[in-house]
Write a protein that binds this DNA or RNA. Structure first.
Length: 584
DNA sequence: ATAGGGTTAG
């Protein structure tokens, strides 16, 4: 190790390296750097030092910085380039065996999210075991990565430390590890950790308790979440909100509301949780109801945040509530709320689903650099409106701008092709999605592709695709195939598909009977229709009756299959006939 | 010589 007492020697050495660099090759300079006698630092550190010195031109004048100055600099959480220089200084002054400097370095590396560098320092910690604080910092870093189970490994290592260097986990450790269980959705780990928490008497700790409630909320184990909540001596807005989230995730909206009104203080996240709970459970009217209650609430001084607005817009999209949707849009503009990517995507989706495709395009065109979600929203919106060519144009623009499509984008594009008869375009996208964008076709993509082929009349080709699938076909696929047979009046293929379905599912997937009966009906085979319908009635597998609705001038109009209840049904049917004549 | 680290929605 270099000695700290010999700074002049080090600085002249570094100067020499720099000179070598200028005169000779980088490799030679590096070599020189490594073979310097007394300099016994591992390769990694020497390269770090070397690159710090060569890239950031630490001059001879400021080369030696006092310990005090170094620790002060580290305290300020410096940016990457500066941190590398400080790290170089610490190595050069042989301070890397001083625990407090390593601690600060780990802190700083984690601050700039360089987990590997922090992990390296952690592995070569100067003491037999780092203190619990440093363990906690590392565990938290992996916990934040969400997709890594490395925090479990660290926690296991911590528990396995032998007696003389034993470090005990504290409330911070458990907070992070419980959160990791929630992120990893590992119920098994969660239950074990919960046991450890109880054994360490930390269940009633505010932070540990809150993370436990959150974990059980993610697992949808509302009983356990409530038990933890009930046993806590101190509760805050997180405890209440996480509990509500558990009930909402589990579809228990009644209990969620009860707790919501009981909680002493509600913040914007509490409102977001209850509102997104309604949205997730398909209760769109309640979403709008709670939004208006939130806006009127004088008790809680809260404004709807991005999550609330996105949920409300999605509710409007699902209800076809154009008026309420535009009101929310106006609210966003009036309050100068930042039109984030999520908000603009939600607006595009809402306007597209409520029939305002032109406004959707206007919003899309105003986005300076649209991201995947913006593009996907626009493409799907155009596809519902049968504007397949426009959707493909937007898709091509997306590719030109080097924005990579995701699975949902491809579904939108395939639907667009399907509704516009663009068979070859759709086929080439479907067959290349894995090679071009690394997206493995999912059952939804097969559904779209089969629908595309079927609608265009390539019935045999569609059936071949279904037979070649490595995923088990679902009801959506069969529906696409059967409705294609119906459109193209192909009774022969329809029958063979029905046979095929019967082979795969002994009782037939629920809902497929409706399609079978529709197929027979369209071919005038009423005897078969009544047979199928009778079988359906006997097995009581009658599926929910299809229902659609749209809002016109603030009134919601609802329609069901074979509707006779709507007050203007005669006018509606007349218009429908008119359209049929125009189309055929 | 000592401090330093924390949980919620989409």
């Amino acid at each position: 190790m270099l000695r700290a007492e010999t700074p002049h020697l080090i600085s002249s050495f570094f100067f020499f390296v720099k000179l070598q660099m200028r005169l000779l090759s980088w490799r030679k300079a590096k070599h020189l750097f490594r073979i310097k006698p007394n300099y016994r630092i591992c390769t990694y550190s020497s390269i770090t030092t070397f690159s710090a010195v060569s890239q950031h031109k630490i001059t001879d004048q400021n080369f030696h910085i006092t310990r005090k100055k170094l620790s002060k600099l580290l305290h300020q959480r410096p940016p990457k380039s500066q941190l590398k220089q400080i790290h170089a200084q610490i190595l050069a002054q042989a301070l890397s065996s001083t625990a407090s400097f390593v601690d600060s370095l780990i802190h700083c590396y984690l601050h700039i999210k360089e987990v590997t560098s922090a992990r390296f320092l952690f592995l070569h910690y100067p003491l037999p075991s780092p203190p619990i604080l440093i363990w906690n910092l590392m565990i938290r870093a992996y916990c934040k990565l969400q997709n890594s189970s490395e925090s479990f490994n660290l926690f296991r290592q911590l528990l396995n430390l032998d007696q003389p260097i034993r470090v005990l986990p504290d409330e911070y450790t458990f907070t992070f590890i419980v959160t990791s269980c929630a992120h990893q959705r590992s119920v098994v780990h969660g239950k074990i950790v919960h046991g450890l928490v109880v054994r360490n008497g930390l269940e009633s700790n505010l932070y540990v308790g809150n993370s436990l409630i959150n974990m059980f909320a993610v697992f949808k184990i509302t009983d356990d979440a409530y038990k933890v909540f009930d046993r806590m001596t101190e509760r805050d807005v997180f405890s209440w909100t996480s509990l509500i989230c558990g009930y909402a995730n589990n579809g228990e909206m009644y209990q969620a509301c009860e707790i919501f009104y009981k909680m002493p203080v509600r913040n914007d996240v509490s409102w977001a949780v209850i509102i997104s709970g309604f949205a997730g459970n398909g209760k769109y009217m309640e979403v709008l109801l709670y939004l208006s209650e939130m806006l009127c609430s004088h008790e809680d001084k809260v404004r709807p945040n991005e999550a609330v607005l996105v949920c409300a817009l999605s509710a409007c999209a699902n209800l076809g509530a154009l008026e309420q949707g535009s009101w929310i849009h106006a609210y966003i503009k009036r309050n100068e709320i930042h039109e984030s990517s999520n908000i603009s995507t939600a607006l595009i989706d809402m306007y597209a689903k409520c029939g305002g495709i032109d406004i959707a395009r206007l919003i899309f065109n105003r986005i300076p650099r649209p991201d995947v979600h913006n593009f996907t929203g626009m493409i799907s919106g155009l596809s519902y409106h049968g504007l397949g060519v426009h959707a493909l144009t937007v898709f091509n623009r997306m590719l030109d701008e080097n924005v990579n499509p995701n699975e949902v984008t491809i579904i939108g594009v395939l639907n667009a092709c399907s509704h516009s008869g663009l068979v070859e375009e759709g086929a080439s996208i479907f067959y290349n999605m894995e090679t071009f964008w690394g997206l493995k076709p999912q059952i939804e993509h097969y559904g779209c592709y089969v629908d595309l082929l079927g609608r265009a009349g390539y019935l045999e080709r569609a059936l071949e695709v279904v037979k070649s699938m490595d995923i088990k076909p679902d009801i959506v696929i069969w529906r696409a195939l059967l409705s294609a047979c119906r459109i193209h009046r192909n009774i022969f293929l329809g029958n063979s598909i029905i046979d095929f379905i019967k082979q795969l599912h002994s009782d037939g997937p629920s809902g497929s009977e409706v399609l079978v009966s529709n197929l027979y009906a369209s071919l005038g085979n009423w005897e078969k229709v009544s047979q199928v319908r009778k079988a359906m009635g006997q097995r009581k597998t009658q599926s929910d009756i299809g229902c659609s609705w749209i809002e016109v001038n603030g009134v919601v109009h609802e329609f069901r299959v074979a509707d006779k209840l709507h007050p203007q049904i005669l006018e509606v049917l007349e218009k429908l006939n008119e359209l049929w004549i125009v189309l055929s």
